[in-house]
């Protein structure tokens, strides 16, 4: 499908607009990103590797990020699928409120989110003392990091799934039930394959956000090197300590992850568009293809159906 283009624009206006857009994207995105890599590899790949692998605190930060982010994404995946299913398959009082509340993390500053968690789980908080007496430490510890990361990435999966599940509708699931499938069979064989690309898209976005989260994590972590520092926190700390090459090395890992995410996103979005087209094709019925004769060899075919 060709998109409409404006042909009446003056060549000069046209050229200026293109230059401005390219200039801004280049200046704000391409140049800074390139300079991160340039900085990180300024002293060669060996120095880059040393900065990452030979500093125990940096090693710990990378490991922590690689633990916390998948945990938060896993929680959000379960929550997102369950909520999207609930919201798209049922009408109940408070439904739109629930959808709106899912969006709160988008509009609340991550620092505020972190502070809120401290107010609840901190030593003087609502639940903190009880949890501490049970031997659970949330704030200044990894559970706090997971909670904060889950909070800020909460809308990403559920927001991705609701429109897709609404568009698909419940008919296939009902058909599966009437054919004898259990709830779990319906989910794994019908629902999940239908939403897989949307789900993957949500997971990729949530993972990118989780890996890069700074504000909320900063508040709940206490910023303890070798204990609660994640990669973004480590970048900031190294930078404050005037260890710019080491800082940039960690930053380049984050930037690399972002680039991988970008590629994954583009690939998945293509699949999503293809699926949307397929859904549309499945709803329209090209009857001209139908050339099968219907009226031959009947009685032989029905044997065995008359049980």
């Amino acid at each position: 499908m060709s998109k409409p283009t404006i042909t009446s624009a003056h060549p000069l206006t046209h050229g200026l607009l293109v230059a401005a857009a390219t200039g801004i994207v280049g200046l704000l995105i391409v140049v800074p990103l390139a300079s991160v890599f340039a900085e990180a590899f300024a002293e060669g790949p060996a120095a880059w590797w040393r900065a990452l692998a030979h500093d125990p605190d940096t090693r710990h930060a990378i490991w922590l990020s690689l633990t916390v982010a998948p945990l938060a994404v896993a929680i959000n995946t379960v929550f997102g699928v369950a909520t999207a299913w609930l919201v798209s398959r049922f009408r109940f009082p408070g439904r739109s409120l629930l959808i709106t509340l899912c969006d709160v993390p988008f509009s609340v500053s991550p620092v505020v989110a972190g502070l809120a968690l401290v107010l609840i789980f901190g030593r003087q908080g609502l639940l903190g003392p009880t949890l501490e007496s049970l031997g659970w430490k949330v704030i200044f510890s990894w559970p706090g990091l997971v909670l904060a990361t889950t909070f800020v990435t909460l809308p990403l999966v559920v927001r991705e799934l609701i429109p897709v599940m609404e568009a698909i509708g419940p008919e296939e699931e009902l058909a599966a039930v009437s054919l004898g499938a259990s709830g779990w069979q319906v989910f794994t064989r019908v629902t999940l394959p239908n939403i897989r690309w949307a789900l993957l898209h949500g997971i990729v976005l949530a993972n990118a956000r989780a890996m890069g989260e700074f504000g909320a994590v900063y508040v709940v972590s206490g910023h303890i090197a070798g204990a609660t520092d994640t990669m973004p926190l480590r970048v900031e700390k190294l930078f404050q300590e005037y260890r710019t090459p080491a800082s940039m090395a960690v930053a380049s890992v984050l930037a690399g992850l972002a680039l991988i995410t970008l590629v994954a996103k583009v690939v998945i979005e293509r699949r999503l568009e293809a699926e949307a087209r397929e859904l549309e094709a499945a709803r329209s019925l090209p009857d001209t293809l139908d050339t099968t004769p219907l009226d031959t060899g009947f009685s032989t075919a029905t044997k065995g159906l008359t049980s």
């Binding site: 058909a175 394959p193 859904l279």
Partner: peptide, 20 residues
């Protein structure tokens, strides 16, 4: 429950499993 009724149901828009 529907899954125990041994009823064959043909839906208006067929509801075929698209990915199968």
């Amino acid at each position: 429950h529907a899954r125990q009724r041994e009823v064959g149901f043909v839906f208006q828009h067929y509801a075929l499993f698209r990915h199968m």
